[in-house]
Design a protein around this nucleic acid. Structure first.
Lengths: 320, 320
DNA sequence: CAACAGTATTAGAAGTTCTAATACTAAGGA
DNA sequence: TCCTTAGTATTAGAACTTCTAATACTGTTG
């Protein structure tokens, strides 16, 4: 934090004049280089010399020569003025290289939550003029990215087999056990619960569905009764009305929440079932935007999880 | 070399305002930090945003937040403003730390040559107000430095056994064979010459005298007839009048030159006889001045050698 | 709707930088 | 010695930039 005015307001101009005079060895020539009069140059050099309390240029010789102090100033001033030019160039480049059109594929389960924040970020921080948002299944996003119909995907499937992409971790969430509020049976194991209630899960056409099915197979858990649905709200409705139990991540749960749904949430009695959300874009195309989107998404989703799922939701999400 | 005006004249002030606003998160607070009105701050930020063609601060949130471009600018601006502050501090320090009194011991043989240039350098480039110059034998200078009666010595004896000194090489000059212009004898060896003329050399009370005596002893050269003198001009007078021959460095020769002296100069028929001149000061006391003095001394002495000794003198001096 | 908090914009005052003219300095030549 | 030339310093006032006080505008809250 800088104190109040510590730098001379006209310092840059004076340094420009000083460098021009130093390198031409003559007040008038230096001034001419900058399109100034000899008098203006003389005044700038005099002001610098007064400010620093020391002679910078020895005018008694031809060509004029830098003093010791003048040589020190020359070295430093050149570096600083170049840094300023670089800074100006960079900032103008940031502005000019802004993204005019952004096409984003968002996984359906988190699309509602993320849309407002994403639009604000893209427009305000990155000057994006046109935004196209597509909510859908994660499987579609790979093709959209590959065929350049989408520039960015926010997805639970990071397309690890696909090259030329940059990936930015959003968060990893564990699946929770979702029971009807009135469930009185055992919660020690999935088998015990399954004896009381059927499993309500996503269909095999969904990534979540396939992921859960695969994991349960690995656990040798083969439920007798299964209810399959394609939407989060269908799943949660069945559970809320006591028709079954389910396994959902916090974000899936939020996506399915409707008013007056009474559900009981527990940590899964088995480990290793989780879902990772990632922001994915083609490498280098969007500069800093994908990373910023990932950061914003995490922040936004965490807020919702705390608000709608509470402590148990918070504990089921990684903190990295 | 910078082109004509490429940097905005008010850029520094605008950057100071930008940083203050960025770090307080509020236009009015940032302005207050710099003792400005809210309106002035608003105008500076607007000017920057117009210049760069992009939004730098998002005012719609509380506290105000930097855009992506704003964050880039913040990083760069802080570095540059700190560099400017450092530069101003350094330049003011150079001025304030100028040396008010400088006491220099110069070897007698080069004192006349160096005095004008040394005084100019010290006053013009280093702002030295009072200069005391002492011409004398190099043996004295060690004591003057040790007892702080002198700050700088320009000498042929670098006091290698004394710690806490900084040394700056000026030049190394080989001894030349100095003969009467009318000498007709052999110049193949010192023995041959000695058969014709006595050796005229500095007395053992001088560093040059001791150095030459020591070296001749190493060569097993023991002249029958020796003329000893304490001053260069005595030596050169004897030689010029045909009374003897001598061994002198270019600077010693110049020191002894008087009008209408006809001397014949030859490269010595033996090797390894040379003298090194060094600028010596107590470590760190005089900052950059000793190095500058050494550089100026070399330049000055080289000019004199070329002028009074010519090509053979130039060839007998190192070029490093 | 009114009150409040904060920013943007405007007109004119204040401050800074510029120019044209002039004064000053040093060196060289007649 | 005087005059001319080359170059810099200084001055008065014009031109430009930055500032302030006042007002308009925007968004949020009760």
């Amino acid at each position: 934090m800088l104190d109040r005015r510590t730098l001379s307001p006209g310092l840059i101009r004076s340094l420009e004049v000083f460098i021009a005079v130093a390198e031409t060895g003559q007040m008038r020539s230096g001034a001419k280089l900058l399109g100034l009069s000899q008098s203006a140059a003389s005044q700038h050099i005099a002001a610098l010399e007064k400010s620093f309390g020391t002679r910078l240029i020895d005018r008694s010789v031809r060509p004029a020569r830098l003093t010791h102090a003048g040589m020190r100033l020359h070295i430093r001033a050149q570096k600083i003025l170049h840094a300023l030019s670089d800074m100006e160039s960079e900032l103008r480049h940031v502005g000019q290289a802004s993204i005019s059109l952004l096409r984003v594929g968002i996984q359906a389960s988190i699309a509602t939550t993320l849309t407002p924040s994403l639009v604000a970020l893209a427009q305000k921080d990155f000057g994006v003029e046109d935004i196209t948002l597509h909510a859908g299944q994660s499987g579609n996003h790979e093709q959209l990215l590959r065929t350049k119909q989408a520039d960015l995907a926010i997805t639970s499937n990071p397309f690890l087999d696909m090259d030329g992409l940059e990936r930015h971790h959003i968060l990893k969430e564990d699946y929770l056990l979702v029971l009807p509020a009135g469930y009185q049976g055992s919660t020690d194991s999935l088998e015990a619960i399954q004896r009381e209630l059927p499993l309500v899960r996503f269909g095999d056409t969904t990534n979540a569905g396939r992921q859960i099915a695969q994991h349960l197979r690995r656990l040798r858990f083969e439920p007798d009764r299964v209810i399959q649905a394609d939407r989060s709200s269908m799943v949660t409705s069945c559970v809320a009305t006591g028709q079954g139990f389910s396994l959902l991540t916090p974000t899936l749960l939020i996506d399915g929440l409707v008013e007056n749904m009474n559900l009981r949430l527990l940590k899964l009695p088995v480990v290793g079932l989780s879902r990772t959300l990632t922001a994915v874009a083609r490498e280098g195309e969007l500069q800093d935007l994908p990373a910023a989107v990932a950061k914003m998404s995490k922040h936004s989703l965490m807020d919702q999880i705390v608000r709608f799922v509470g402590e148990i939701g918070l504990k089921s999400v990684d903190r990295s």
